[in-house]
């Protein structure tokens, strides 16, 4: 499988990265080089193999349902949450107006 300029433009749009025509042109051969190289995986017979789900055998722990049990993972910290916001007003994050 290889990509063309239209595909690269579509991927960039999905990834929300603005790219110029020239950048797209440059990326096409680069991405195709990488894709052609990773496609050698197709050689491997994996018909009897389950995809890896956990690199080290381990199962998911369940947390107790307690509010703010650990201040590091709890709420009630609006100032900390908004501290680095490019636009914070009246306790909200501001973004360009969205029309739904």
């Amino acid at each position: 499988m290889s990509v063309d300029t239209a595909t690269v433009a579509k991927i960039a749009s999905l990834a929300r990265i603005k790219v110029s025509e020239a950048e797209i042109e440059a990326m096409v051969p680069e991405l195709n080089g990488i894709l052609a190289w990773v496609e050698q995986l197709g050689e491997v017979d994996t018909s009897q193999v389950e995809p890896m789900t956990a690199v080290i055998p381990n199962t998911l722990r369940l947390r107790d349902d307690v509010i703010d049990a650990d201040p590091l993972t709890g709420g009630n910290k609006r100032d900390a949450v908004l501290a680095n916001a490019p636009a914070a007003e009246h306790g909200f994050f501001g973004v360009p107006k969205v029309i739904e």
Binding site: R63, V66, I67, D68, A69, D70, L72, T73, G74, G75, N76, K77, R78, A80, V81, L82, H90, G91, F92, F93
Partner: peptide, 18 residues
């Protein structure tokens, strides 16, 4: 995350870093 789920709280008050 451990933040609360109650309805009608002050904006962004029930928000954790997560």
């Amino acid at each position: 995350s451990g933040s609360a789920t109650a309805f009608g709280a002050e904006p962004n008050s029930q928000v954790s870093l997560i």
